[in-house]
Protein backbone atom coordinates (compact mmCIF):
# COMPACT_ATOMS: atom_id res chain seq x y z
CA UNK A 1 0.00 0.00 0.00
CA UNK A 2 2.95 2.32 0.02
CA UNK A 3 2.11 2.71 -3.61
CA UNK A 4 -0.81 4.94 -2.96
CA UNK A 5 1.06 7.17 -0.59
CA UNK A 6 3.66 7.85 -3.21
CA UNK A 7 1.12 8.63 -5.86
CA UNK A 8 1.11 12.36 -6.55
CA UNK A 9 -2.66 12.53 -6.59
CA UNK A 10 -3.09 9.76 -4.09
CA UNK A 11 -3.24 11.87 -0.97
CA UNK A 12 -6.94 11.44 -0.63
CA UNK A 13 -6.63 7.72 -0.28
CA UNK A 14 -3.89 7.85 2.32
CA UNK A 15 -6.02 7.73 5.50
CA UNK A 16 -7.48 4.37 4.57
CA UNK A 17 -4.15 2.96 3.52
CA UNK A 18 -2.76 1.23 6.65
CA UNK A 19 -5.71 -1.13 6.81
CA UNK A 20 -4.72 -2.91 3.63
CA UNK A 21 -0.97 -3.14 4.12
CA UNK A 22 0.43 -6.22 2.42
CA UNK A 23 3.63 -8.08 3.25
CA UNK A 24 5.40 -7.05 0.04
CA UNK A 25 7.25 -4.08 1.46
CA UNK A 26 10.72 -5.52 1.13
CA UNK A 27 10.58 -6.23 -2.59
CA UNK A 28 8.99 -2.91 -3.21
CA UNK A 29 11.54 -1.02 -1.21
CA UNK A 30 14.32 -2.66 -3.20
CA UNK A 31 12.53 -1.84 -6.44
CA UNK A 32 12.10 1.74 -5.36
CA UNK A 33 15.76 2.12 -4.50
CA UNK A 34 16.66 0.86 -7.95
CA UNK A 35 14.17 3.25 -9.49
CA UNK A 36 15.69 6.15 -7.60
CA UNK A 37 19.16 5.18 -8.80
CA UNK A 38 17.90 5.12 -12.40
CA UNK A 39 16.28 8.52 -12.00
CA UNK A 40 19.38 9.97 -10.39
CA UNK A 41 21.56 8.63 -13.21
CA UNK A 42 19.33 10.27 -15.81
CA UNK A 43 19.34 13.55 -13.91
CA UNK A 44 23.14 13.46 -13.74
CA UNK A 45 23.37 12.68 -17.44
CA UNK A 46 21.12 15.65 -18.08
CA UNK A 47 23.17 17.98 -15.93
CA UNK A 48 26.72 17.14 -16.93
CA UNK A 49 26.70 18.96 -20.30
CA UNK A 50 25.39 22.00 -18.45
CA UNK A 51 28.30 21.87 -16.11
CA UNK A 52 30.49 21.65 -19.18
CA UNK A 53 28.87 24.74 -20.66
CA UNK A 54 29.38 26.58 -17.40
CA UNK A 55 33.00 25.49 -17.34
CA UNK A 56 33.61 26.74 -20.87
CA UNK A 57 31.79 30.00 -20.19
CA UNK A 58 34.06 30.66 -17.21
CA UNK A 59 37.21 29.91 -19.20
CA UNK A 60 39.50 32.14 -21.18
CA UNK A 61 38.79 31.30 -24.79
CA UNK A 62 42.47 31.19 -25.68
CA UNK A 63 43.36 28.78 -22.89
CA UNK A 64 40.56 26.33 -23.67
CA UNK A 65 42.46 24.20 -26.17
CA UNK A 66 45.42 23.58 -23.90
CA UNK A 67 43.19 22.91 -20.88
CA UNK A 68 40.89 20.52 -22.72
CA UNK A 69 41.34 17.57 -20.40
CA UNK A 70 40.60 19.45 -17.18
CA UNK A 71 37.26 19.38 -15.40
CA UNK A 72 37.80 22.92 -14.15
CA UNK A 73 37.60 26.16 -16.11
CA UNK A 74 40.75 27.04 -18.02
CA UNK A 75 42.04 30.34 -16.59
CA UNK A 76 38.93 31.19 -14.59
CA UNK A 77 37.44 34.49 -15.75
CA UNK A 78 34.08 36.20 -16.05
CA UNK A 79 35.27 37.80 -19.26
CA UNK A 80 32.85 35.87 -21.42
CA UNK A 81 29.86 37.04 -19.42
CA UNK A 82 31.17 40.59 -19.52
CA UNK A 83 31.52 40.32 -23.29
CA UNK A 84 28.00 39.00 -23.70
CA UNK A 85 26.54 41.74 -21.55
CA UNK A 86 28.47 44.34 -23.48
CA UNK A 87 30.51 45.35 -20.42
CA UNK A 88 33.89 44.59 -21.93
CA UNK A 89 35.75 47.00 -24.17
CA UNK A 90 36.57 46.01 -27.71
CA UNK A 91 40.24 45.47 -26.90
CA UNK A 92 39.43 43.46 -23.81
CA UNK A 93 37.06 41.26 -25.79
CA UNK A 94 39.48 40.66 -28.65
CA UNK A 95 42.30 39.90 -26.22
CA UNK A 96 40.24 37.06 -24.78
CA UNK A 97 39.50 35.62 -28.18
CA UNK A 98 36.10 37.23 -28.47
CA UNK A 99 34.64 38.85 -31.52
CA UNK A 100 34.37 42.35 -30.16
CA UNK A 101 30.68 42.29 -30.87
CA UNK A 102 28.69 43.45 -27.91
CA UNK A 103 24.96 43.20 -27.43
CA UNK A 104 22.27 45.19 -25.75
CA UNK A 105 21.22 42.29 -23.56
CA UNK A 106 18.29 43.86 -21.75
CA UNK A 107 16.60 45.20 -24.84
CA UNK A 108 16.86 41.86 -26.62
CA UNK A 109 15.63 40.12 -23.52
CA UNK A 110 12.55 42.32 -23.51
CA UNK A 111 11.97 41.64 -27.21
CA UNK A 112 12.17 37.91 -26.56
CA UNK A 113 9.81 38.10 -23.61
CA UNK A 114 7.32 40.18 -25.55
CA UNK A 115 7.24 38.10 -28.73
CA UNK A 116 7.26 34.76 -26.89
CA UNK A 117 4.44 35.88 -24.59
CA UNK A 118 2.20 37.11 -27.38
CA UNK A 119 2.86 33.98 -29.44
CA UNK A 120 2.08 31.76 -26.46
CA UNK A 121 -1.21 33.47 -25.62
CA UNK A 122 -2.42 33.51 -29.22
CA UNK A 123 -1.25 30.07 -30.16
CA UNK A 124 -2.60 28.32 -27.08
CA UNK A 125 -5.98 30.08 -27.23
CA UNK A 126 -6.59 29.66 -30.95
CA UNK A 127 -5.23 26.13 -31.01
CA UNK A 128 -7.48 25.25 -28.08
CA UNK A 129 -10.47 26.65 -29.95
CA UNK A 130 -9.56 24.60 -33.01
CA UNK A 131 -8.93 21.53 -30.89
CA UNK A 132 -12.37 22.00 -29.31
CA UNK A 133 -13.93 22.03 -32.78
CA UNK A 134 -12.03 18.89 -33.70
CA UNK A 135 -12.59 16.99 -30.48
CA UNK A 136 -15.96 18.07 -29.11
CA UNK A 137 -18.04 19.27 -32.03
CA UNK A 138 -19.53 17.11 -34.76
CA UNK A 139 -19.49 18.42 -38.27
CA UNK A 140 -19.06 16.98 -41.74
CA UNK A 141 -15.49 16.80 -43.01
CA UNK A 142 -14.03 17.01 -39.52
CA UNK A 143 -11.56 14.17 -39.87
CA UNK A 144 -10.39 15.33 -43.29
CA UNK A 145 -9.78 18.87 -42.11
CA UNK A 146 -8.01 17.59 -39.04
CA UNK A 147 -5.76 15.41 -41.13
CA UNK A 148 -4.95 18.41 -43.31
CA UNK A 149 -3.92 20.30 -40.17
CA UNK A 150 -1.84 17.33 -39.12
CA UNK A 151 0.00 17.18 -42.44
CA UNK A 152 1.18 20.72 -41.85
CA UNK A 153 3.56 19.14 -39.33
CA UNK A 154 5.37 17.54 -42.22
CA UNK A 155 6.17 20.66 -44.21
CA UNK A 156 9.83 21.46 -43.72
CA UNK A 157 10.37 24.91 -42.25
CA UNK A 158 12.79 25.78 -45.04
CA UNK A 159 9.89 25.58 -47.46
CA UNK A 160 7.54 27.75 -45.45
CA UNK A 161 10.21 30.29 -44.53
CA UNK A 162 10.76 31.64 -48.02
CA UNK A 163 7.12 32.30 -49.07
CA UNK A 164 6.37 33.63 -45.60
CA UNK A 165 9.35 35.95 -45.79
CA UNK A 166 8.15 37.28 -49.13
CA UNK A 167 4.67 37.72 -47.67
CA UNK A 168 5.96 39.72 -44.71
CA UNK A 169 8.07 41.85 -46.99
CA UNK A 170 5.12 42.63 -49.27
CA UNK A 171 2.97 43.49 -46.29
CA UNK A 172 5.70 45.89 -45.25
CA UNK A 173 6.09 44.09 -41.95
CA UNK A 174 9.81 43.34 -42.04
CA UNK A 175 11.54 44.34 -38.82
CA UNK A 176 8.35 44.56 -36.81
CA UNK A 177 7.19 42.48 -33.88
CA UNK A 178 4.22 41.44 -36.01
CA UNK A 179 6.44 39.68 -38.54
CA UNK A 180 8.19 37.69 -35.82
CA UNK A 181 4.91 36.76 -34.16
CA UNK A 182 2.36 36.18 -36.92
CA UNK A 183 3.35 32.77 -38.34
CA UNK A 184 3.13 31.22 -34.87
CA UNK A 185 0.29 33.30 -33.49
CA UNK A 186 -2.76 31.53 -34.88
CA UNK A 187 -1.78 27.91 -34.52
CA UNK A 188 0.86 25.31 -34.85
CA UNK A 189 -0.14 21.81 -35.93
CA UNK A 190 1.59 20.54 -32.82
CA UNK A 191 -0.55 22.61 -30.44
CA UNK A 192 -3.81 21.67 -32.14
CA UNK A 193 -2.93 17.99 -32.19
CA UNK A 194 -1.75 18.02 -28.59
CA UNK A 195 -4.90 19.65 -27.23
CA UNK A 196 -7.25 17.63 -29.40
CA UNK A 197 -5.87 14.44 -27.90
CA UNK A 198 -6.51 15.75 -24.40
CA UNK A 199 -9.94 17.14 -25.17
CA UNK A 200 -10.95 13.76 -26.59
CA UNK A 201 -10.37 12.26 -23.20
CA UNK A 202 -12.59 14.68 -21.28
CA UNK A 203 -15.87 13.40 -19.91
CA UNK A 204 -19.02 14.54 -21.67
CA UNK A 205 -21.15 14.48 -18.54
CA UNK A 206 -20.49 18.00 -17.36
CA UNK A 207 -20.69 19.33 -20.87
CA UNK A 208 -24.08 17.70 -21.39
CA UNK A 209 -25.30 19.00 -18.06
CA UNK A 210 -24.25 22.51 -19.02
CA UNK A 211 -26.03 22.16 -22.31
CA UNK A 212 -29.22 21.24 -20.59
CA UNK A 213 -28.76 24.37 -18.50
CA UNK A 214 -28.74 26.27 -21.77
CA UNK A 215 -25.04 27.07 -21.99
CA UNK A 216 -23.70 27.84 -25.46
CA UNK A 217 -20.48 26.57 -27.01
CA UNK A 218 -18.56 29.67 -26.02
CA UNK A 219 -19.58 29.28 -22.42
CA UNK A 220 -18.87 25.57 -22.40
CA UNK A 221 -15.46 26.16 -23.93
CA UNK A 222 -14.36 28.89 -21.55
CA UNK A 223 -16.12 27.73 -18.39
CA UNK A 224 -15.81 23.97 -18.62
CA UNK A 225 -13.32 22.74 -21.21
CA UNK A 226 -10.52 25.19 -20.46
CA UNK A 227 -10.63 24.86 -16.65
CA UNK A 228 -10.83 21.09 -16.90
CA UNK A 229 -7.73 21.09 -19.12
CA UNK A 230 -5.58 23.29 -16.94
CA UNK A 231 -2.77 20.74 -16.78
CA UNK A 232 -2.33 20.08 -20.50
CA UNK A 233 -2.89 23.76 -21.26
CA UNK A 234 -0.18 24.93 -18.90
CA UNK A 235 2.16 22.21 -20.14
CA UNK A 236 1.52 23.28 -23.71
CA UNK A 237 1.91 26.96 -22.87
CA UNK A 238 5.27 26.22 -21.33
CA UNK A 239 6.46 24.25 -24.35
CA UNK A 240 5.20 26.88 -26.78
CA UNK A 241 6.97 29.56 -24.78
CA UNK A 242 10.25 27.68 -24.84
CA UNK A 243 9.93 26.92 -28.54
CA UNK A 244 9.23 30.58 -29.37
CA UNK A 245 12.07 31.64 -27.15
CA UNK A 246 14.48 29.34 -28.99
CA UNK A 247 13.23 30.24 -32.47
CA UNK A 248 16.24 31.40 -34.42
CA UNK A 249 15.96 31.20 -38.18
CA UNK A 250 12.66 33.02 -38.60
CA UNK A 251 13.43 36.06 -36.40
CA UNK A 252 16.86 36.18 -38.03
CA UNK A 253 15.14 36.57 -41.39
CA UNK A 254 12.47 39.10 -40.49
CA UNK A 255 13.73 40.86 -37.37
CA UNK A 256 17.36 41.86 -37.65
CA UNK A 257 16.84 45.51 -36.70
CA UNK A 258 17.97 46.46 -33.22
CA UNK A 259 14.49 47.52 -32.15
CA UNK A 260 12.92 44.11 -32.58
CA UNK A 261 15.93 41.80 -32.43
CA UNK A 262 15.36 38.88 -30.10
CA UNK A 263 17.94 37.26 -27.86
CA UNK A 264 18.63 34.19 -30.02
CA UNK A 265 19.38 36.35 -33.05
CA UNK A 266 21.61 38.60 -30.99
CA UNK A 267 23.46 35.58 -29.61
CA UNK A 268 23.92 34.15 -33.10
CA UNK A 269 26.88 36.49 -33.54
CA UNK A 270 28.88 34.43 -31.09
CA UNK A 271 28.76 31.51 -33.49
CA UNK A 272 30.59 31.01 -36.78
CA UNK A 273 32.35 34.26 -37.57
CA UNK A 274 34.51 33.39 -40.53
CA UNK A 275 34.35 30.38 -42.83
CA UNK A 276 36.96 28.45 -40.91
CA UNK A 277 37.71 30.57 -37.86
CA UNK A 278 37.11 29.29 -34.37
CA UNK A 279 34.03 30.56 -32.63
CA UNK A 280 34.18 32.42 -29.35
CA UNK A 281 33.39 29.27 -27.36
CA UNK A 282 33.33 30.94 -23.97
CA UNK A 283 31.14 33.77 -25.24
CA UNK A 284 28.78 31.34 -26.94
CA UNK A 285 28.30 29.27 -23.81
CA UNK A 286 27.95 32.30 -21.56
CA UNK A 287 25.34 33.67 -23.94
CA UNK A 288 23.50 30.37 -24.03
CA UNK A 289 23.40 30.12 -20.26
CA UNK A 290 22.24 33.71 -19.90
CA UNK A 291 19.50 33.13 -22.46
CA UNK A 292 18.37 30.00 -20.65
CA UNK A 293 18.20 31.72 -17.27
CA UNK A 294 14.88 33.50 -17.85
CA UNK A 295 13.43 30.21 -19.00
CA UNK A 296 14.66 28.43 -15.91
CA UNK A 297 13.09 31.17 -13.78
CA UNK A 298 9.89 30.75 -15.72
CA UNK A 299 9.89 27.03 -15.12
CA UNK A 300 10.53 27.49 -11.42
CA UNK A 301 7.41 29.65 -11.30
CA UNK A 302 5.37 27.70 -13.79
CA UNK A 303 6.29 24.21 -12.69
CA UNK A 304 4.66 24.88 -9.34
CA UNK A 305 1.57 26.10 -11.14
CA UNK A 306 1.30 22.87 -13.06
CA UNK A 307 1.25 20.84 -9.88
CA UNK A 308 -1.21 23.25 -8.30
CA UNK A 309 -3.56 23.20 -11.23
CA UNK A 310 -3.64 19.44 -11.23
CA UNK A 311 -4.50 19.32 -7.58
CA UNK A 312 -7.04 22.04 -8.10
CA UNK A 313 -8.88 20.17 -10.82
CA UNK A 314 -8.79 17.01 -8.78
CA UNK A 315 -10.24 18.49 -5.60
CA UNK A 316 -12.82 20.87 -6.93
Amino acid sequence: MTLVQENPTGRLAAPSAPAQRKPRRRGIRWQRALAWVALAALVLLTLFPFYWMLRISLSDNRALAAGAGSLLPADLTFGAFRRVLGLATLEEARAQGGSGASIDFWRYLWNSVLTSSVITVGQVLFSAMAAYAFARLRWPGREAVFFAFLTALMIPPIFTALPNFVLMQRLGLLNTYAAIILPFFFMTPFAVFFLRQFFLGLSREIEEAAKIDGAGHVRIFFRIILPMSAAPLSTLALLVYITSWNEYFWPLLVGQEEDVRVLTVALGIFRSQTPQGSPDWAGLMAATLLAALPMIALFAAFGRRIVDSIQFSGLK
Binding site: A161, F249, L252, L253, G268, I269, S272, Q273, T274, P275
Partner: peptide, 12 residues
Protein backbone atom coordinates in the same frame (compact mmCIF):
# COMPACT_ATOMS: atom_id res chain seq x y z
CA UNK B 1 26.26 37.81 -39.77
CA UNK B 2 28.14 34.57 -39.20
CA UNK B 3 29.19 32.64 -42.29
CA UNK B 4 26.26 30.22 -42.57
CA UNK B 5 23.58 32.77 -41.63
CA UNK B 6 25.16 35.22 -44.00
CA UNK B 7 24.48 33.20 -47.14
CA UNK B 8 21.00 32.20 -46.02
CA UNK B 9 20.15 35.85 -45.50
CA UNK B 10 21.72 36.97 -48.77
CA UNK B 11 19.75 34.30 -50.62
CA UNK B 12 16.43 35.19 -49.00
Amino acid sequence: FGWADYWNKITT
